[in-house]
Amino acid sequence: MNIVNIHEAKTHLSSLVEQAANGETFIIAKAGKPLVKVTALDAPTGKQKRRTGFLSGQITVPDDFDRMHSKKIEKLFGSGQ
């Protein structure tokens, strides 16, 4: 595991962050004393399985969904005329 001092980390932050994001963990030290460990987060990637349709058959949308409560809404906001 690579150890860099604070000054070097500030100078090369962009490339160090890129390395960490690619799985290369490193440690930042001050006066030779390790302070923090920088590692990539377990963020979702585009390669993960999408969950579209996982509630299929468990919920229903009424046929008149786009017209539900239209009279109440017209009364609240006016009829648009």
Score class of each variant (00 low, 15 high):
Ile3Cys: 01
Ile3His: 03
Ile3Phe: 07
Val4Thr: 03
Asn5Trp: 01
His7Asp: 01
His7Pro: 00
His7Ile: 05
His7Glu: 11
Glu8Leu: 06
Glu8Cys: 00
Ala9Ile: 00
Ala9Arg: 00
Ala9Lys: 04
Ala9Asn: 03
Lys10Gln: 11
Lys10Tyr: 11
Thr11Phe: 11
Thr11Lys: 15
His12Gly: 01
His12Ile: 08
His12Ser: 14
His12Leu: 15
His12Thr: 09
Leu13Gly: 10
Leu13His: 08
Leu13Ile: 12
Ser14Asn: 14
Ser14Tyr: 08
Ser14Pro: 12
Ser15Tyr: 11
Ser15Ile: 02
Leu16Ser: 01
Leu16Pro: 04
Leu16Asn: 05
Val17Met: 10
Glu18Asp: 14
Gln19Leu: 07
Ala20Glu: 03
Ala20His: 04
Ala21Arg: 11
Ala21Met: 10
Asn22Lys: 12
Asn22Phe: 07
Gly23Cys: 07
Thr25Leu: 02
Thr25Asn: 07
Phe26Leu: 14
Phe26Pro: 10
Phe26Arg: 04
Phe26Ala: 02
Ile27Thr: 15
Ile27Gly: 01
Ile27Gln: 10
Ile28Gln: 06
Ala29Pro: 00
Lys30Tyr: 04
Lys30Glu: 07
Ala31Lys: 09
Ala31Trp: 00
Gly32Gln: 05
Lys33Arg: 10
Leu35Ile: 04
Val36Asn: 03
Val36Ser: 02
Lys37Asp: 07
Lys37Trp: 01
Lys37His: 01
Val38Arg: 07
Thr39Pro: 00
Ala40Lys: 11
Ala40Gln: 11
Leu41Arg: 04
Leu41Asn: 05
Leu41Cys: 05
Asp42Phe: 03
Asp42Lys: 10
Asp42Trp: 05
Ala43Phe: 08
Ala43Lys: 07
Ala43Thr: 09
Pro44Lys: 10
Pro44Val: 01
Pro44Glu: 02
Thr45Asn: 12
Gly46Phe: 07
Gly46Ala: 09
Gln48Leu: 12
Gln48Cys: 05
Gln48Pro: 00
Gln48Tyr: 02
Gln48Val: 12
Lys49Ser: 05
Lys49Arg: 11
Arg50Asn: 09
Arg50Gln: 13
Arg51Pro: 01
Thr52Asn: 08
Gly53Cys: 03
Phe54Asp: 11
Ser56Glu: 14
Gly57Met: 04
Gly57Lys: 03
Gln58Glu: 13
Gln58Ala: 09
Gln58Ser: 10
Ile59Thr: 13
Thr60Gln: 09
Thr60Ser: 06
Val61Leu: 14
Pro62Val: 12
Pro62Ala: 13
Pro62Ser: 13
Asp63Asn: 15
Asp64Arg: 06
Asp66Gln: 11
Asp66Thr: 11
Arg67Lys: 14
Met68Tyr: 14
Met68Ala: 13
Met68Thr: 09
His69Thr: 06
Ser70Asp: 15
Lys71Thr: 10
Lys71Leu: 12
Lys71Gly: 04
Lys72His: 09
Lys72Tyr: 08
Ile73Lys: 15
Ile73Pro: 08
Glu74Arg: 14
Lys75Ser: 14
Lys75Tyr: 09
Leu76Asn: 08
Leu76Val: 09
Leu76Tyr: 12
Phe77Glu: 15
Phe77Ala: 13
Phe77Gly: 06
Gly78Pro: 14
Gly80Cys: 00
Gly80His: 03
Gln81Tyr: 02
Gln81Thr: 12
